[in-house]
């Protein structure tokens, strides 16, 4: 028998217990499909026909909800005439992310340009220059807002996270205490609290008249929160670099910063790819918490859509649709992470 490919008998049906487990799981899958598929596919209504949907209620899904409400879910309350702006902005941001994800393009120039493109896409959505009408940030919403918050939040938090991680492992007591304190404070409270404080309490500390935009406050809160978690992940990676290498670098006369940037951080980052992408995925989904400050990102927009009393009964279909969208992005990040790990494993040996 070919040793590299195991047959069904050797894996799924290997012994009594495994066979039992396999059979029960298969049975559950069949039972689930038997009950789910008729509702989801065979008896479902695929057009935005309210009458047909009502008639099919209970026996068939109403995917017409999606056809009716997808603009609201994907773009929020953005004025429809300017809808090209969040579309273009989202594409630009995703393209910039794709560029940043390619290892062969990790030069300072390209990374800064990608960051610039992201800044530009945010500006594009908000407008107020070059003939673009100014859109109040409360109107930003849907998937476009989720992407904006997740991308800006995750990317801008990285430099802060590196600084916090280096600060926490520093020999200078003041810096170490400040960084540790910040990390523990932020990690000790839920994101909702951070967003709440960033949104409502932050303006209280500023001189009157200075009222930063809600988008700015929320993004700031997200960045701080994300940075605290990423800092601990990166610190784990920093600690994993063998002390002997640092000593060798010191013996060669390298300075602290040279050692960190050339020896420690490159190796630390290679090691922490899985937990770091884990953090990215979590923050991506945590953006749904900004509904607390009345910003309607993907999930919030869904709830807005379901506020329509005629379509409210079909909330399950809405949730499934939104869950699918989250799943697409999160699994893409997951696949990317695995690819990155493979690349690094080859070089690391």
């Amino acid at each position: 028998m070919n040793e590299t490919s195991l047959s069904w008998r050797q894996t799924l049906f290997n012994g009594k217990v495994n066979t039992l487990i396999t059979v029960s799981l298969l049975a559950s899958l069949v039972w689930f499909a038997w009950n789910f598929l008729p509702w989801a596919v065979f008896n479902a209504v695929f057009t935005a026909d309210l009458e047909a949907c009502r008639a099919a209620r209970g026996s068939g899904a109403c995917w017409g909800l999606i056809e009716e409400k997808w603009k609201l879910i994907v773009f929020g309350r953005y004025p429809f005439e300017e809808i090209w702006r969040p579309i273009v902005a989202s594409i630009m941001m995703l393209a910039a992310c794709l560029v940043m994800s390619q290892r062969q393009w990790w030069t300072p120039l390209i990374l800064f340009s990608a960051a610039g493109v992201i800044a530009l896409s945010v500006a594009l959505m908000i407008g107020g220059f070059a003939g673009l009408s100014s859109i109040p940030t409360e109107r930003l919403g849907g998937l476009a807002l989720t992407l904006l918050l997740a991308i800006v939040g995750n990317i801008l938090s990285l430099p802060l996270a590196v600084a916090l991680a280096l600060g926490r492992t520093s020999n200078l007591p003041f810096i170490r205490v400040v960084c540790s304190g910040f990390i523990e404070l932020v990690r000790g409270v839920p994101l909702i609290t951070v967003l709440f404080m960033a949104s409502f309490m932050f303006p209280l500390f500023l001189p009157s008249g200075m009222n930063p935009d809600v988008l700015l406050r929320v993004t700031g809160g997200l960045i701080l929160f994300s940075a605290a978690y990423q800092a601990e992940v990166i610190r784990g990676g920093i600690n994993s670099v063998p002390r002997g290498q640092i000593e060798a670098a010191q013996a060669l006369g390298m300075s602290y910063w040279l050692i960190q940037t050339k020896i420690v951080l490159p190796q630390a980052f290679r090691v922490v790819v899985p937990p770091l992408v884990n953090s990215f995925i979590a923050i991506f989904k945590d953006t749904s918490l900004v509904t607390i400050v009345s910003m309607f990102e993907l999930f919030g927009s869904l709830r807005l859509a379901l506020a329509d009393p005629q379509w409210r009964p079909f909330f399950i279909e809405g949730f499934i649709f939104v869950a699918l969208i989250y799943w697409v992005f999160c699994s893409a990040m997951s696949r990317y992470s695995r690819g990155l790990e493979r690349d690094f494993a080859v070089a690391r040996r």
Binding site: P242, G244, Q245, E247, A248, I263, Q267, A347, R349
Partner: peptide, 11 residues
């Protein structure tokens, strides 16, 4: 300095 465990930079 030359170390017992070489301490080369693996990356």
């Amino acid at each position: 300095m030359v170390f017992q465990s070489f301490n080369l930079f693996p990356h």
